[in-house]
Every structure is written in structure tokens, then in C-alpha cells.
Amino acid sequence: MGLFDNIGSPAPQNVQQSSGNKTVDVVFTKLPDNFAEFTALPQAAMDDPFKTAALTVLALCFYPQDKDTCIQMLNFLKGPQPLSTYEQQFLADRFRDADYVPRSYFVGAVPANDYKPVQPYTVKVSENPYSYQDSGYAKLYLQSGGADSPRPIQLRLAKDGKWYLWEQFLLAGIRPPESTNPWA
């Protein structure tokens, strides 16, 4: 059974406050199988930057299985500014050897379990005191189960009231799954 075998409506979102920074748990009970199901998710309204950040993880998870659908989803998230040729080549380069990186952003996905997330599928998205210092932009952070520090993602508020993906730094290297380590 694959990571994207089922779809359903997302569970309620949990919001936590810690150290003056907000963290939002964006929860999906099941994950989409295709572009139509992806755009039908309630988070696809993109009415807050936390939702768009979590949807970016879902879109990136599609790349190893269906590159074209992943690009279609990312273009949806980018709104009026689709992926450039450079950005598409960057994706191809990043996925050449490490298709597990996007899965690592789901809660419970760590090297010891080969980045298999727990269900319901949850992406923790955090802000800090500097997240909104540039007007019309939000710089949020996602924690990978294979990295020591959170990774940034930048979103931009458009005049239609939606938060679009502006720039993501989610595909940087992380610790490899233990199954690939002959010494583990």
C-alpha cells in the first residue's frame, strides 16, 4: 500500500503556542492520489500560509511517483508564477538520490522507520517573531525527522487573499534512512 492510496477530508487542525511562536499541526486523515483530489482538499483554499506550506510537502511527495503531477501541484501552489525551468531542474537533481526527503516532514517519519509517517498524516508548520517582517510575505519553518534544524519555506500573499508558494528550502539533504546504511 503506497503513501497516497487513499484520500479523505483532513482532521481538525491543532494550534499550539510555545515560546511566543505559533506552531500549527496541519492534519490529513488520508492523502490525495491525483491533482483533482489535491485541489479538492480544504487546505487548497490557501487562505493562510500554514496550509500552503503543508500542501507543498504533499506536492513534493508526488515527485518520485509522478513528476508531472508534482509539477502541476506545485504550479497550482505557486499561482501566478509557475515553476521556472531552473526550478524544475533543481527538483530533478534533488530527487535523483533522495526520494524520501519530502516524507520526512510528516510527524513520525524518521531514519529508523525509513521515513514512514504515522497516521493521521501531520505536518507541523511554525512561525517565529521574524516570519512576517516583509510585508506580504511569510517565512515559516517545517521540521524534518532527519534534520537537526527546521527548514524555511516562504509564501506570498496575493491580492486574491491566497498565500502562494514563493520559495521552498525543504529539499536540502537529511540523514539517510537506516535501511540504506549497511552498518545500522
Results as ranks from 00 to 15, higher is better:
residue 136 G to D: 06
residue 149 S to D: 14
residue 90 F to M: 11
residue 87 E to Y: 07
residue 91 L to K: 03
residue 155 L to G: 08
residue 140 L to S: 10
residue 107 V to F: 00
residue 109 A to S: 05
residue 122 T to H: 07
residue 137 Y to L: 14
residue 118 V to D: 15
residue 87 E to C: 08
residue 115 Y to I: 08
residue 97 D to W: 04
residue 108 G to E: 00
residue 147 A to V: 05
residue 149 S to Q: 15
residue 103 R to K: 15
residue 122 T to P: 06
residue 90 F to H: 09
residue 111 P to T: 10
residue 99 D to H: 09
residue 78 K to Q: 15
residue 142 L to E: 04
residue 152 P to C: 01
residue 151 R to V: 01
residue 84 S to F: 12
residue 129 P to T: 07
residue 96 R to P: 05
residue 89 Q to L: 10
residue 125 V to Y: 07
residue 105 Y to C: 00
residue 101 V to M: 02
residue 140 L to V: 10
residue 69 T to H: 05
residue 116 K to T: 15
residue 116 K to P: 02
residue 154 Q to Y: 11
residue 75 N to I: 01
residue 137 Y to K: 10
residue 135 S to V: 10
residue 92 A to P: 06
residue 127 E to Q: 13
residue 64 P to S: 03
residue 109 A to I: 02
residue 102 P to R: 06
residue 90 F to K: 08
residue 92 A to G: 11
residue 145 G to I: 02
residue 90 F to A: 08
residue 112 A to K: 14
residue 75 N to F: 01
residue 134 D to I: 15
residue 122 T to N: 09
residue 71 I to D: 07
residue 150 P to W: 04
residue 129 P to N: 11
residue 125 V to G: 07
residue 123 V to I: 13
residue 138 A to R: 09
residue 104 S to W: 06
residue 92 A to L: 12
residue 117 P to Q: 03
residue 134 D to H: 10
residue 91 L to E: 04
residue 104 S to R: 06
residue 110 V to Q: 04
residue 72 Q to L: 14
residue 141 Y to D: 05
residue 106 F to A: 01
residue 156 R to K: 15
residue 92 A to M: 09
residue 106 F to Y: 02
residue 95 F to T: 00
residue 99 D to V: 14
residue 106 F to K: 00
residue 147 A to T: 10
residue 117 P to L: 00
residue 129 P to D: 10
residue 76 F to W: 00
residue 138 A to C: 09
residue 129 P to E: 11
residue 121 Y to N: 02
residue 73 M to Q: 08
residue 141 Y to H: 12
residue 149 S to W: 09
residue 76 F to E: 00
residue 87 E to I: 13
residue 82 P to A: 06
residue 133 Q to A: 14
residue 64 P to F: 03
residue 94 R to C: 02
residue 104 S to C: 06
residue 66 D to T: 13
residue 121 Y to R: 02
residue 151 R to Y: 02
residue 69 T to G: 04
residue 76 F to G: 01
residue 87 E to D: 14
residue 67 K to N: 05
residue 136 G to V: 04
residue 81 Q to L: 10
residue 132 Y to P: 09
residue 151 R to F: 02
residue 68 D to L: 14
residue 112 A to W: 10
residue 97 D to C: 06
residue 123 V to G: 01
residue 85 T to R: 07
